[in-house]
Amino acid sequence: MNHDNYSDNYIRSILNTVKTIAMVGISPKENRPSYFAFKYLLDRGYRMIPVNPGQTAKPILKQKVYATLSDIPEPVDMVDIFRSSEHVLPIVEESLRLTPRPQVIWMQLTVRDDEAASLAEKVGLKVVMNRCPKIEYGRLSSEISWIGVNSRTLSSKRAQNLGTGLQRMSLGKSDKKDAR
């Protein structure tokens, strides 16, 4: 897997497949990027589970906070890592011990650990590094175009509304042949 460049279909197929996302390292402060991403994905219909050992006393956006991934009592489809690169490896190792295993490990913008990525890929997980799922969702749904960002996508088909509000768009269908 080339982790310098991901095809739009690879990213789209991940965001179209996963339903439950555990965000490791979320901040309860509403001006932090992790809070932004968590709230945005929650608002797009994902089941979002906050993971932060220092923040278990109070829910974040009404979602119960767990200290570790292993504490989560339900299956997780994707682990989204909001920690700096040096903290990634133990989080990936813990993810791989979960039953059932998650399908996707996602590392946020500026976060990258190739060794941890290959561990996960060896047992069949998909990995995305140095990307933000909020930005990628916004880009592939065309929502991000509203703020003048170059989505690097062209289409003669119109973007589809998500159906939960006028300014929430869906990702569109994944093209199966190029999902990998």
């Binding site: 509403e30 809070y35 932004f36 709230k39 945005y40 608002d43 916004g138 929502e143 991000i144 509203w146 703020i147 509000g165 300014q167």
Partner: peptide
Amino acid sequence: HAAALFGLQTFGN
């Protein structure tokens, strides 16, 4: 939604 827009937490008009 209005609060999220004004707080720059979501994309929109």
